[in-house]
């Protein structure tokens, strides 16, 4: 399974800069946001964590539709599906999601503190936001993997994936932003624990459901 992880990361890095595209999208929308909201410093500082969380969510979802589609197009998904039972497929989805997270989401998180500082020059908030993203974005990838599995067979699954997944990840957005605010303010860490619980929960449920979806929708 380390094997699959390495292949996906390599393919991701070499895939015509797909990683860079998500990152560029993320940076661009953040840079554009003052044009929509105005340059009021207090407003931007207050909106900062929410904006970053929201755009990170969109950037993650944008690339996720390719998670299984490339494998389906080149034929390797058939071989992986034929070779696996339910539990090994669940592990497979988990590994692919992890590879996607490392190759696509980690660069976003690396850029997040800089972007946060642009909106609000407070180190503490930047660090808190980054920590909340590290803990929470895996949940988005895991439940997004279910969306990717459901829409893998569809030619234009990208938008449908977002529509299917967005309602399901409302808790992640709620606790993600709350956790970053709580961390920055040094108040109770309750939302952080909820966020962690969500990531663990979706880490279990998302890949299992995605494996079911892939297995049942193979044709």
């Amino acid at each position: 399974m380390k094997n699959l992880f390495i292949r996906d990361i390599k393919a991701g890095i070499k895939a015509g800069g797909a990683i860079g595209t998500s990152l560029l999208f993320f940076i661009s929308v953040i840079i554009l946001s003052p044009f929509a909201l105005g340059t009021d410093k207090t407003l931007l500082a207050q909106a900062g964590p929410g904006l970053l969380w929201f755009f990170a969510l969109l950037a993650v979802l944008l690339g996720l539709d390719r998670l299984f589609q490339t494998d389906k197009e080149d034929g390797s998904l058939d071989i992986i599906l034929a070779a696996g039972d339910f539990s090994s497929l669940t592990v497979m989805v988990l590994v692919k999601s992890a590879a996607h997270w490392v190759s696509t989401v980690l660069p976003l998180i690396a850029a997040a503190p800089v972007l946060s500082l642009l909106l609000n020059p407070a180190w503490r908030q930047a660090a808190a936001l980054t920590a909340s993203l590290v803990l929470g974005t895996p949940a988005i990838t895991f439940i997004g993997a279910l969306g990717a599995a459901l829409t893998a067979a569809l030619p234009r699954g990208g938008v449908l994936l977002a529509v299917l997944v967005l309602p399901l990840i409302i808790p992640v957005i709620i606790f993600g932003t709350a956790a970053s605010v709580a961390l920055a303010a040094g108040t109770a860490l309750q939302p952080l624990y909820f966020l962690l619980a969500l990531t663990l929960f979706f880490g279990l449920v998302g890949p299992a459901a995605a494996a079911l979806a892939l297995k049942f929708t193979a044709e």
Partner: peptide, 20 residues
């Protein structure tokens, strides 16, 4: 036997990543 791990399936596609 279960069919997993028993057969090689070669479809019309070659199951290779073009960029690797």
């Amino acid at each position: 036997l279960p069919r997993q791990g028993f057969s090689h399936y070669l479809s019309d596609k070659n199951a290779m990543k073009p960029q690797l």
